[in-house]
Design a protein around this nucleic acid. Structure first.
Lengths: 142, 142
DNA sequence: AATTTATATTTACAGTTGTAAACTGTATTT
DNA sequence: AAATACAGTTTACAACTGTAAATATAAATT
């Protein structure tokens, strides 16, 4: 029924460790997450297993302990999640949501510059207004 | 275990109708969602019921059919969801995520202007860089 | 009042998620 | 080789979700 698997909140925490390290053993992930959370090591093992099943992680099994590597890039994963969430929103509200996000996130100087450039491009072709379509049948949801 | 209830994807669709109409009967919600989705009316009734249980909706039961009203504003709900999602992300990646979002969302002229103003404020105090904390214990998650 | 219709509430059921113990197989140390 | 320690795999279980049928209740019609 579900087209594409998605990553749960707890699974995200595991992926973040592995993305940041590039690859990791379960031991490494467990050590770090035991400091960050109050999860038992068994819980973390479960999460690693599920991430493999969902094809977000792959174990290099040539020698033990296995080394786990990401099968999806962090950027791709972020894109997927953020897009999925924004799909829930009224299209009229997306601008506001982004504004809110900017207000509540710590963003570096260079990222701010980058975003401004994006906006400068965007403004050239942006519509005067975006209408709410919450009540309309969306014929096309590609 | 769960501090605050959150809204599922399907429940969001129901709320969007009710926010947009201000209030609605189940019949109205069902009619609209039957055009937008392939859900059966029974499914939509279940969702309305769950939203009431989670205190996102309240039924005015003075006369039938009941009129359902939101107990949370659309903006508040958006803030909650978006914040929850961004909590998953590496803080170093949030700027990029926002940039990606802007690239992929239709945003009105006025929203763009608003966002630019926000950025202009933000840039004054923004840090040069934001460091990844994916491997660190977060002592404080208030 | 009895029947039909509309609407609201209960029950159902499989899959996902958070959370973790138990078990199994491999590697290391006596 | 036997015992121990680790790491990987299975099993568990309740709550939440998507999906919907069945049932109960109230309103409208006959």
């Amino acid at each position: 029924m579900k087209e594409v698997e998605s990553m749960s909140r707890a699974e995200w925490q595991v992926m973040r460790i592995i993305w940041t390290l590039g690859q990791a053993t379960s031991k490494q992930v467990i050590e770090i997450l035991e400091r960050k959370t109050d999860w038992k090591s068994a819980t973390i093992k479960t999460l690693i297993g599920r991430l493999q099943k969902k094809n977000f992680l792959q174990a290099d099994e040539t020698n033990r302990p296995y080394v786990y590597k990401p099968l999806i890039s962090e950027n791709a994963a972020i894109h997927e999640s953020v897009t999925e969430l924004f799909d829930n929103l009224c299209c009229m509200k997306k601008g506001m949501a982004i504004d809110d996000l900017i207000n509540n996130s710590e963003i570096s100087q260079s990222d701010i510059v980058k975003i401004m450039q994006t906006l400068n491009q965007k403004v050239k072709t942006a519509p005067e207004t975006v209408n709410c379509n919450c009540l309309e049948a969306d014929l096309n949801e590609e």
